[in-house]
Design a protein around this nucleic acid. Structure first.
Length: 786
RNA sequence: GGGCGGUUAGCUCAGUUGGUUAGAGCGUUACAUUGACAUUGUAAAGGUCAGAGGUUCGACUCCUCUACCGCCCACCA
């Protein structure tokens, strides 16, 4: 045995030994007690083409639980998988495309999908190898990919059930649309950022005989073309004398336009002048106001973020000129043009250049969100949320730490319907088809035989193109909200075109427990569902955890897991969030290679509380590398002691008694000194506290107690105290008993070094078992009970 | 605007239902050490547990308020 533990000489070999022993699979797990209830965890699937970051390393929590339960003889399985990560992956791929000077618009839907599939294939595999480097004992034979057949089958089946139950609907509803990325986002996927923009005061109507002009304050003068109304709070005394007027004629940039006056007490009297312009097609509040007051919804901005005035019919040459000036230009540009024009003719009476407000951007690229009214697929969430709330109130599912339960309720109680359609290719296509004969208003974008993009109504295009050409080159299809559709996995007939939207990635990952385990009738599903623990970071509590709970309840009436453990966010040593731009990203694989996986694992656990950040520093990992070496040397000391055959043989009998008998041992069984008796008693306490800490998800205490006991009590105190003793066989017996128990208790968090020592001991003839430590029985407390 | 956390040693943080002298790692200082380990050992310094008030025999722990930091949700035409 070398005097220093070098993880590089052991980790890869040991991982191989574990895999070959069948320990990771409950069907081949050596110590399994089939009569016990299985213990199951599903690994939150990383993106298939991702590589490991510090957050993934926190899944060590799961490995600790898995290894502990496996040692207890439970049929134990930790099922890994990877996510297709819809938009995120497509975004990465598009960046890749644009580096090559290409764009997604040059490809038909199927080709683009195939290319991304290949891209993901080429870049996947890394993450699993990295998880193995950390020692994660997943059952790789059960790995699932989010686009596997079995996943799609379940997702389609759920969709069909939801249709049958009336939970799915299509609506022309205002959604968060990103012109930059060409897709819709749910409310969880957008953020609000503060920005300074000019606030324009536009005089809509002179006061005439009234007390006040009607002046609106807005940051969006460009939508004025299709503004339908101006709104005033009925309690606003300043405008009482306007109450008899139902509409005004505004002399706008495109000439005179009619605007209704509506009265609504949602209007903030404090803001601006208390008069607001209403744009039902491009603002969520205005849309709601419009529905309430029956206003027209006239879209003004197209899918590319450009002003679209093609529906406007000019009635004079001046107007035509004006329309041409604005039409087809980007929103930001038109805003400046309109503002300049209205300032020039005095319509804009004031500009506040320092107005600070929040604008909506998408979470990934920070691009502006344009609220748009477009047909989308929605899921009615109220009924699902009610089940989710009831399950938590009933403690069918509990949260660690419990404060997240409050957040969970808050979100579910205020839940909104879920727009599940995304206008991207990379994902599971919504299994819907439209007949071109039944739906004359279908619009398509496709590539013709010459790879030219064609946009238009199918009905009009059929004179010029074969339907097959359209189908083959199809990029996107837009069906009116009232289109007749058929739900089917396969194309239902010759005159059908497919829906081109895909499901929100969370719609499929929200069914992860069902899809991985093979709902509804596979053996694994019957055996392992519901699972026991779901461990993830708190940032996807709503995105993922809550939805898994709701969707599992919907399909099975059972929660998918009993405990939700929300682990720490890993930060840098100063407690700052890691980010590429700050340059403070710590790569867990680097640390693993330098100091060993065990050191990293325990560094992530010790001193962390669930839901709170954990600061990771190289020094901390280094400190625990020293601990691994300490373990190694305690083991080495014992090996050296046992090399005296006489001592070893004598100690053998004593050890048997130690193992077989309860404490306190009487002296006729074993001639123990008080310090022997004491360390043995303390060991029993340690077994109890370690087990209890794991039962209560107190991982930090679990790790630190062991660290403290082994380093201070075993090494510094007990071991030092024995150095002058003559009765070496007793010392050896006690040391082997105590330290081997410590190795078992420590194995879940530091699996490699403990297993490496186990092997060394086996070679040195100290152990009577051939069994690997990974499937050794978890220690029990043996005490005389008074 | 609504909600949730945090504030404990120089730094990063634990502290399970209120119970003797408040803990760890790193850092600092001094000393020691050629036989398990320098990836070591021994010892020391260092805290009015953010502030104020309250409940209690007893409060880092429970309650109220204040200050600062952070997060989540909603959202400002």
């Amino acid at each position: 045995m070398d005097s220093t533990y070098n993880h590089k000489n052991h980790e890869a070999n040991i991982y191989k030994l574990w895999e070959e022993s069948g320990a990771f699979n409950p069907d081949t797990q050596k110590n399994v007690n089939s009569s016990k209830r299985p213990f199951t965890i599903l690994l939150p699937p990383p993106n298939a083409n991702a590589s490991l970051h510090a957050g993934h390393a926190m899944f060590v929590i799961e490995d600790i639980l898995i290894r502990w339960h496996r040692m207890m003889g439970d049929p134990t399985v930790w099922i890994p998988g990877t996510d297709h990560a819809g938009f995120e992956t497509q975004y990465v791929y598009e960046k890749h495309l644009s580096k090559a000077g290409k764009s997604r618009f040059q490809f038909d839907r199927q080709t683009l999908y195939n290319d991304i599939y290949q891209f993901v294939q080429d870049n996947s595999g890394t993450i699993f190898n990295q998880l193995k480097q950390l020692g994660f004992s997943c059952d790789w034979s059960r790995a699932t990919f989010m686009l596997d057949e079995k996943v799609i089958k379940v997702v389609y089946d759920t969709f069909q059930h939801m249709i049958d139950d009336g939970l799915i609907y299509r609506d022309n509803y205002i959604v968060n649309y990103s012109p930059k990325n060409g897709t819709t986002f749910s409310e969880l996927e957008v953020m609000h950022v503060e920005r300074i923009d000019p606030l324009y005061y536009i005089n809509i109507a002179d006061k005439g005989s009234h007390t006040h002009d009607l002046v609106v304050a807005t940051v969006r003068p460009e939508t004025i073309f299709y503004d339908e109304a101006i709104a005033i709070n009925p309690n606003d005394g300043r405008y009482n004398d306007w109450k008899d007027t139902t509409e005004v004629i505004f002399n706008g940039p495109l000439g005179s336009q009619q605007m209704r006056i509506i009265w609504d007490d949602s209007i903030d009297m404090e803001f601006g002048t208390g008069v607001m312009k209403v744009t039902p097609a491009h603002d969520a509040n205005d849309f709601a106001l419009g529905r309430k007051h029956n206003l027209r919804v006239r879209p003004l901005i197209d899918f590319f973020g450009k002003i679209d005035l093609s529906a406007f019919s000019p009635n004079s040459p001046t107007q035509t000129e004006r329309v041409q000036k604005y039409h087809g230009k980007k929103v930001a540009q038109v805003r400046k043009l309109v503002a300049a024009d209205m300032s020039a003719d005095g319509t804009i009476v004031k500009v506040d250049e320092t107005y600070t407000h929040n604008v909506t951007v998408d979470y990934k690229t920070g691009g502006d969100i344009e609220p748009m009214v477009m047909p989308n697929w929605f899921v009615k969430m109220k009924p699902l949320a009610q089940k989710g709330i009831a399950a938590a109130k009933n403690k069918d599912v509990t949260f660690v730490p419990s404060r997240f339960e409050t957040q969970y309720y808050q979100w579910l109680e205020n839940i909104r319907d879920w727009p599940i359609s995304r206008q991207i290719v990379w994902g599971i296509r919504i299994p819907v088809w439209y007949s071109i004969n039944e739906n004359p208003h279908l619009e398509v974008t496709f590539l013709d035989e010459n790879h030219e993009r064609v946009i238009g109504r199918v009905a009009d295009l059929l004179d010029q193109y074969e339907l097959n050409t359209i189908r083959a080159g199809l990029q996107t299809l837009r069906a009116p909200v009232d289109a007749v559709y058929r739900v089917s996995n396969e194309c239902p007939g010759d005159d059908y075109l497919p829906e081109t939207d895909t499901f929100d990635t969370w719609f499929s990952s929200g069914q992860w427990p069902l899809t991985t385990l093979g709902f509804p009738d596979s053996a694994d599903f019957k055996r392992f569902f519901p699972t026991q623990v779901l461990d993830t970071m708190w940032d996807i509590l709503f995105f993922w955890v809550a939805r898994m709970i709701m969707l599992s309840l919907y399909r099975t009436n059972t929660v998918p897991f009993e405990t939700v453990y929300l682990h720490s966010m890993v930060t840098d040593e100063k407690g700052a969030k890691m980010s590429k731009s700050k340059g403070n990203v710590i790569n867990p694989i680097d640390l693993t290679e330098k100091y060993g996986a065990d050191a990293l694992r325990i560094a992530l656990i010790a001193g962390s509380a669930p839901g709170n950040p954990i600061a990771l520093s190289e020094n901390k990992v280094k400190g625990y590398r020293n601990f691994a070496n300490k373990l190694w040397n305690i083991a080495r000391f014992i090996v050296l002691l046992s090399q005296n055959e006489e001592i070893r043989d004598k100690s053998y009998e004593l050890r048997k008694k130690l193992k077989e008998n309860s404490l306190p041992l009487t002296s006729y069984l074993l001639p123990l000194l008080p310090e022997d008796q004491q360390i043995l008693n303390e060991l029993n306490t340690l077994i109890e506290t370690s087990t209890s800490n794991l039962e209560h998800f107190r991982f930090s205490d679990y790790a630190q107690n062991l660290y403290d006991f082994i380093w201070n009590r075993v090494a510094s105190d007990y071991l030092e105290s024995t150095k002058g003793r003559e009765d070496k066989e007793v010392v050896l017996a006690v040391l082997i008993h105590v330290f081997s128990t410590c190795l078992k208790l420590l194995h879940p968090v530091m699996p490699f070094v403990t297993e490496a020592i186990w092997q060394e001991w086996s070679a040195a003839g100290i152990l009577e078992t051939e069994q690997l430590l990974i499937t050794i029985s978890w220690p029990n407390v043996k005490l005389h009970h008074q």
